[in-house]
């Protein structure tokens, strides 16, 4: 059920820390779950040639990205015995110290939840058409590239 529903992944701006607490709270009624794994991506104040990153402005090929997110979910649910999985990714400007990615996987046991969470993060980073403009304190910018 949970895995069949098309999910809205993108949120405008930073992901509020309260969202994480709410997500945990909303799973307390699902008593077949024994473990959650959470990954939070946070904007780092990288230094490049003496300038410091103050924010990342995210954009995406949204229609394709939604399809890819869906495919990643389908594969994850076939590979791992997870109860549910939730992904949220920011679009637009996210300042350093704020959250841009929230992956939340749940399972009966810890190993599966952790492995599935890692799987989602790696797949998202390599396969989803999301682009990031690193904005420096002087408002100049460079384009981010995942390694």
């Amino acid at each position: 059920m949970d895995k069949k529903k098309p999910k809205k992944v993108f949120v405008q701006g930073a992901i509020a820390p309260e969202k994480i607490a709410q997500s945990i709270a909303s799973h307390q009624s699902k008593t077949n779950i024994g473990a959650h794994s959470i990954f939070l991506g946070q904007i780092r104040a990288d230094e490049v040639e003496g300038k410091t990153v103050s924010a990342i402005d995210y954009s995406a090929y949204e229609e394709m990205a939604e399809n890819v997110f869906h495919e990643i979910r389908e594969v994850a649910f076939s590979k791992f015995d997870i109860t549910c999985a939730h992904i949220y990714h920011s679009l637009g400007r996210v300042n350093t110290g704020e959250l841009c990615l929230f992956v939340f996987t749940s399972s009966a046991h810890r190993k599966i939840a952790i492995e599935a969470c890692n799987y989602f993060v790696e797949e998202i980073k390599s396969k989803v058409p999301i682009f990031g403009k690193e904005i420096f304190e002087d408002e100049t910018h460079q384009w981010k590239m995942n390694k």
Binding site: G41, I56, Y61, P129, F131
Partner: peptide
Amino acid sequence: VAFLPPFAGG
């Protein structure tokens, strides 16, 4: 046809 630069999600 979409022209996509390197991905940078997460």
